[in-house]
Amino acid sequence: MREVAAEERSEQGVTPRERLDPYTLAVTHGIDIYAIDELPGEHCSHFAVEHFTSVRQAAWSAALVPIGSARIILENVSHDPRRRRSSIAHELGHFLLEHDFHDVLLTDDGCRQFSSAHEKQAKYFSGELLLPEKAARWAAFRGWTNDLVAEHFDVSIEFAQWRMSGARVYARRALERQEGGVGR
C-alpha cells in the first residue's frame, strides 16, 4: 500500500514532503466528485441530504459509488475542508486498492456493512497519500507540532496527530540511540 501511494504521489509530481491534492488525483483517475447537496431531486431526497448535512452530520463523510464501469465519489460538504480531503483520499484508497463493492452494502435499516480489513487498508492508504511515513518522520525529527504538520499538509490536527504518533516515537528512539541513551 505504501508503494502504491508513493507511486500515485510521484505521478502527480508531488514529493513525500509536499501537499497532495486528492481532488486532482481523483480527476487523474477519471473519478468525478459530487457534493451530496447537489443530489436532491431525481437522485436523492431533500430529507436525506438534510439528514446527513445537519441532523446526523457525523454519520457519513463520503462514498465511492459504482456506476456501470465508472466510479464517482459523493462527499458530505457539511464537513470541514480538511476532513473532506481525508475522506476523498480514503475513498480513493478503496478504488486504488481495487476493493470489491460487494463488501460495502447498505442494510434495510440504513446501516453500512463493510469489510473491516478494507476499511483499515483505505484508512492507512489515505494516510500515506496525504502524509507519508517518510514525511512524518522528517517532521518528527524537526520537532514539528501537530498544528504545523496539519497546516503544511492541509490535514486536520487529529489526522496529523494520528500520522505523527509513530513517527515521533521513531525519532525519539533514534535520537536516544545516537546520544547513547535508551536502546543500546
Results as ranks from 00 to 15, higher is better:
G68W: 10
Q57R: 12
A139K: 04
H118G: 13
H94Q: 11
E176A: 13
P132Q: 05
H43P: 00
R9E: 15
T24G: 03
A150K: 09
V27G: 00
E128R: 10
R172D: 06
F47I: 01
V4M: 07
F153Q: 02
D21Y: 10
V149I: 12
S126D: 07
S61K: 12
L74I: 03
E176Q: 08
W144Q: 04
V4D: 11
F153P: 00
A167L: 06
A35L: 13
L20A: 09
R173Y: 09
A136Q: 09
A5G: 12
L25D: 00
Q12Y: 09
R172W: 10
I72Y: 07
A35K: 13
Q178G: 15
W144N: 01
G93V: 02
R112E: 06
V55G: 01
R173D: 07
L130Q: 05
S10E: 05
S86I: 04
L130I: 04
E133N: 08
R173H: 11
S54H: 15
R84W: 12
F114E: 05
V77P: 01
A89P: 00
D32V: 12
S156I: 08
W162P: 03
P40T: 00
A35E: 13
G68D: 03
L64T: 00
W144L: 07
S87G: 12
L106I: 00
L39R: 11
L175E: 05
V55C: 05
L148A: 08
Q161R: 11
T53Y: 09
A171N: 02
S115V: 04
F114Y: 08
D109C: 10
A117H: 14
F141E: 06
A160T: 09
P81V: 02
A70F: 13
Q161C: 06
S156A: 09
G143M: 04
N76E: 02
Q57A: 09
A62R: 07
P22S: 10
R173M: 09
E3C: 14
F141P: 04
K134V: 03
P40S: 00
G110M: 14
R142I: 01
A5E: 07
R17L: 12
H46M: 02
R82I: 00
W162C: 07
I31D: 01
R137S: 06
I36L: 15
R163M: 06
L96V: 13
S78R: 11
P132Y: 05
D32Q: 14
S116W: 11
S86Q: 11
R177T: 08
S156R: 08
A35N: 12
I67N: 02
E8N: 06
D108V: 05
H79M: 04
A117M: 10
G181E: 15
